[in-house]
Amino acid sequence: MSRIGRAEVERIGHLARLRLEPEEADALARDLDAILGYVAELEALDTGGAPPASESPVTPLREDRAAASLPLERALANAPASDGSAFLVPPVLEGEDEG
């Protein structure tokens, strides 16, 4: 029984902002199907009343104190496109000009 196919992989790919070629999506669907088949062994395990491990940790807090952050020019140094004070991206809405 197949747990996941190409259409589902493409849908998840969009959620993850990954654009997959049809052959790539087919190959990944086969891989993910095998992996999901393997992890299905957890389905049969009765975990009783065990609370999920992720719900127990306490987030440690620290004092809220002002401190220097990365200087602007260093923060922008790796930007694919910037205007010296901000990161530039392509149009957010279709039809708009870049910038």
Partner: peptide
Amino acid sequence: YYRKAQRVRAL
């Protein structure tokens, strides 16, 4: 999947 895995992690 995810929540179940976190329960097994506790075990």
